[in-house]
Design a protein around this nucleic acid. Structure first.
Length: 213
DNA sequence: ATCCCGAGGG
DNA sequence: CCCTCTGGAT
């Protein structure tokens, strides 16, 4: 594992390389981030952003989404993949948000996980970006891969373990932005197939760095 | 063939 | 732990 100094150095290097820790999903309302994140399962954010303007203008309110014809939602979101489950979840979650939570996105992990189609990744993103909860760790595919390569985790790919191990090391007020920056770094430099180690600002602390790449 | 800011079920 | 759900890009 890393020393606390290494952790802080990695946090600082990422902050310097990616000054704004932004979510690349486009959204206006809280529930739009929730559903955009559901759509982002095994799909690029870029493609999600191509369908959500159509989805959220065709069904501009939570009430409209709750009453939407699932097959029409399926058509709109088809290109994001897993479209049957995603469409079913979006309509069902809209109904639950209205009926159980008064139309407001809940602010606790426990309640978020009760919503259909909301798992730990989506819940943590909401907690971090909407409610600014300290200690939120979004263990998505980029976070899991890069944390493993760096040696911040023991190599597990199980999201709850990655969450736990990162949360134990990161300053709580930094964890959410840190995860956003890992995503940006995962796209630009530390790609899954062919990581660009030569141009990586994190290589002084990375267990994975191999000069021949 | 592998990957993309996953979730749910066995 | 495993598997399935699905389309698009590389």
């Amino acid at each position: 594992m890393k020393s606390q100094d290494d952790i802080l150095a990695i946090v600082a290097a990422l902050k310097s390389a990616y000054p704004e820790a932004i979510c690349s999903l486009d959204y206006q309302k809280d529930y739009e981030l929730l559903f955009s994140t559901r759509l982002a399962a095994q799909c690029t954010d870029e493609r999600v952003n191509q369908v959500t303007p159509t989805l959220f203008s065709r069904f501009p309110t939570l009430e409209a989404l709750a009453q939407a014809d699932v097959s029409e939602v399926e058509e709109i979101i088809h290109s994001t993949g897993f479209f049957r489950a995603k469409a079913r979840d979006i309509v069902a979650a809209s109904q639950m948000l209205l009926e159980v939570y008064g139309g407001k996105v809940p602010s606790t992990m426990e309640e978020l996980l009760k919503l259909p189609g909301v798992g730990r990744k989506t819940a943590n993103l909401i907690l971090g970006d909407i409610f600014h909860a300290p200690g939120a760790v979004v263990a998505d595919t980029h976070c899991i891969r890069i944390s493993g390569r760096l040696g911040l985790t023991d190599g597990t790919k199980e999201p709850p373990k990655v969450e736990q191990q990162l949360r134990a090391q990161l300053p709580p007020e930094e964890s959410n932005d840190f995860c956003h920056r890992l995503v940006l770094h995962g796209r630009a430099v530390c790609m899954a197939r062919k990581p660009d180690c030569a141009n990586c600002t994190l290589r002084p602390w990375c267990d994975f760095y191999q000069p021949q790449d």
